[in-house]
Amino acid sequence: PVLLVADAITALGVYRIVPSQWGIDVLVGGSQKALLLPPGLSVLWFSQRAERRLKDRAFYFSIKKELKKQMEGQTAWTPAISLILALKESLSMLLEEGMERVENRHRLISKATLRAVEVLGLKPFAEKPSISVSSVFSPMAEDIRRLLLKYGVRVAGGQDELKGKIFRISHMGVDPKDGLMLVGMLEVVLKRLGLFDGLGEGVRAYSEVLTEGGLW
C-alpha cells in the first residue's frame, strides 16, 4: 500500500495536527521552526503500518533501531540532551496554551500582518497563504530587507526564481507584540524608500485585526 508522508516542518507547533485521523503515515518535523529551538532535532511520527515497513538501510541512520531504544526509554546513540530538555519545555508551553489557541494566535497574526501589508501598498504573494509565514511581493524586496536589518529586524528573502522579488515574514512562535513592532519598522523602511508615506496606518490595521479577533 502507498504511504502518505507529510512535511510538517513549518506546521508543527502552529497547527493542531491529528495525523492518525487524517490518514497520515509519516509526519516529519524539525526543532528549528515553531518549536522555538535551534536546529538539531528531527521530529518523526509513524502510523502502525508505516512502522511495520521500516527497514535498516544503514547502521547509524536507522529509525528502526532508534524506535526500539526509545521504547526502552533510551536513545540508540548519543542524544542532544540540551535540545531534548529544551523541546520538553517548548512542548509544555504549547500544551499549556492549547493547540487550538496556538493555531488561532498564528491565524490572527498572519491575517493582521497581511492586512497591514496591503494597507502599506504591498502585495501578498501567495493566493492561499500559510499562517506560518507571509510572503510579500515587491520589486524592491532586497532593499526592504536590507533596511529592516539595519533596524534590527530580520526577514527572509525569496529563493531560486523568487530571489529579489519577495520577502518572507515568519509568524512561527511570534508574540503579537513582535508582529506589531515589525509592521511599525516596515512603515519606516517604506517611507525611507519612498514607497509609502502614511506612518501609523499599517500599525492601526494590524492592531484592529487582533482586537477584533479577541487576541488583544
Rank of each mutant, 00 (worst) to 15 (best):
L122C: 02
T113I: 09
L120E: 00
E51Q: 14
F61A: 15
L95Y: 11
A80F: 14
E118I: 02
S62T: 07
V102Q: 13
Y60Q: 08
Q70G: 08
A76L: 06
T78L: 07
E96Y: 14
V117Q: 10
A58G: 09
I109M: 09
T78D: 07
E96M: 15
K65Y: 14
I63P: 04
M99Y: 10
V119S: 05
G121N: 05
V119N: 05
F61I: 02
M99I: 02
R101S: 11
A86Y: 04
Q70K: 11
V102L: 05
G73H: 01
L67W: 12
L91W: 10
L108E: 05
L95M: 13
Q70F: 01
R105G: 01
I81A: 04
A86F: 07
S90E: 04
L83A: 03
I109F: 10
K64I: 10
S90Y: 09
L67P: 05
I63K: 10
K64Q: 14
V117I: 11
K68N: 06
I84S: 02
A116C: 06
E118W: 04
E100P: 04
Y60W: 12
L91M: 13
E97M: 11
A76H: 07
E96P: 02
V102S: 10
P124D: 10
I84G: 03
E89D: 07
L87N: 02
M93V: 07
F125E: 08
K69S: 08
M71T: 06
L122V: 00
M93K: 15
S110L: 01
R107G: 01
Y60I: 03
S82I: 08
I81Q: 06
K88S: 14
Y60R: 13
A112V: 04
G98D: 11
M71P: 01
R52Y: 01
D56G: 08
I81T: 11
K88D: 15
L122Y: 01
R57G: 13
S110R: 03
Q74M: 14
G98K: 05
S62F: 08
S62Y: 13
E51P: 00
P124Q: 14
E100G: 00
G121F: 02
L87G: 03
Q74Y: 05
R53M: 12
E72V: 03
N104W: 15
P79K: 08
E118Y: 02
V117M: 09
E118Q: 03
L122I: 00
